[in-house]
């Protein structure tokens, strides 16, 4: 019965893309799962894609064992400040960051494995009133933080074992930056979304704030998930956690908008809404390439093809509970769906 209820629902008009349950990771010791992610772990010359799970007081690393099972490799114990989120560092090995805090992020820590002396460590990266954080390529991390007077947007970089001493600051906009996205294919471009629904673009090399563009009033509190430049336009994938249902667009979870960075004009390219008849608003989600996944207020997880603007699969809520987390693995077409009790299901998409 349980397996049946964890099976994705195929929606009308579905093509071959579906979700297949591959394995299940159960953590009996987890008090309250807060996040899940993946990271590369290399030990004794063997490199594997591992799962990282976080509960409020600890973060665990899981490696794949034989026959679709997972074994816990190590658990980092944290202090009294609760873990809020895992911050993966793309294209790195043996490194992951975490954000800790009460209502807001107050601290970022680096968790690492040193293959040289086969040991697991943790170190403090940054403290402050941190509003947004994102791991960047080339072992870097960007964050926005606020003091009463000003906002700081800072990039820190890491060696294999620690944070580098010198950070780099980017010119802050007046408004608070609430999310970041790297601009794919443009090594020196970084994008952010702000508290007043603007898109800002930086030059990472020079720290310049290049452009501020307003998203529009229809969908407040836009959060950027992905950005890429094509044919002179900047395409941005946004989610709208506070959007209201409209007749024309249904219940939009994600939108793709094309901006002309020269003129700051924009146009909507695609909406990704729930199919008619399915209730539930967007709670939280993740985007990788053209695939988006989101946990809905109904307790289900929905998956969309962003280019088609179509929902391609729906995971119904698990028995006696609901999904709390939906994340794409950093490599491979794999969706991690997590429940608050620490159970994580891995689906092949």
């Amino acid at each position: 019965d349980v397996a049946e209820q964890l099976t994705p629902v195929l929606l009308d008009g579905l093509r071959e893309e579906t979700l297949q349950l591959e394995s299940k990771l159960e953590d009996s010791s987890s008090s309250c799962a807060v996040d899940v992610s993946t990271m590369w772990w290399e030990a004794a010359g063997c490199r594997e894609l591992c799962v990282v799970t976080a509960c409020e007081s600890s973060v665990s690393l899981w490696k794949p064992l034989a026959s679709d099972c997972w074994g816990k490799v190590y658990t980092w114990q944290l202090g009294e400040i609760p873990v809020i989120q895992i911050v993966p560092l793309p294209d790195t090995c043996n490194l992951v960051c975490i954000a800790l805090g009460d209502l807001e992020i107050g601290e970022i820590r680096l968790l690492l494995y040193s293959s040289e002396n086969d040991s697991f460590k943790q170190s403090l990266v940054k403290t402050g009133n941190i509003k947004a954080v994102l791991g960047l390529k080339d072992r870097r991390l960007v964050s926005s933080s606020r003091t009463v007077q000003e906002q700081q947007v800072e990039i820190v970089s890491f060696s294999e074992t620690r944070r580098s001493k010198d950070g780099q600051t980017l010119m802050p906009p007046e408004e608070t930056v609430l999310a970041f996205a790297e601009v794919e294919g443009m090594r020196d471009a970084l994008l952010g979304t702000t508290a007043v629904n603007s898109i800002v673009v930086w030059n990472l090399k020079t720290g310049q704030l290049l452009k501020k563009m307003h998203v529009g009033y229809s969908y407040p509190a836009s959060i950027c998930h992905r950005a890429y430049s094509d044919s002179g336009l900047l395409f941005v994938v946004l989610s709208h956690p506070h959007a209201k249902e409209s007749e024309s667009c249904g219940n939009p979870a994600f939108r793709v908008i094309a901006f002309n960075p020269k003129t700051a004009r924009s146009t909507g390219v695609m909406f990704s809404s729930l199919p008619p008849g399915h209730a539930g608003r967007y709670l939280e989600g993740d985007v990788k390439d053209a695939s988006a996944a989101a946990v809905l207020t109904s307790g289900a997880v929905a998956v969309w093809d962003l280019l088609l603007g179509r929902c391609t699969a729906l995971l119904p809520p698990p028995p006696a509970g609901s999904w709390a987390l939906a994340r794409w693995a950093t490599t491979g077409a794999c969706l991690l769906a997590g429940q608050r009790d620490g159970t994580v299901c891995l689906y092949r998409y």
């Binding site: 290049l210 336009l233 900047l234 002309n260 960075p261 020269k262 003129t263 924009s266």
Partner: peptide, 23 residues
């Protein structure tokens, strides 16, 4: 979308905005 909706498009927008922006 058409160019008229979005205004003149430049393939080198990043370099051009970097040259125009404050240091």
């Amino acid at each position: 979308c058409s160019e008229s909706d979005l205004g003149p498009i430049s393939l080198n927008w990043f370099e051009e905005l970097s040259a125009e922006a404050l240091p």
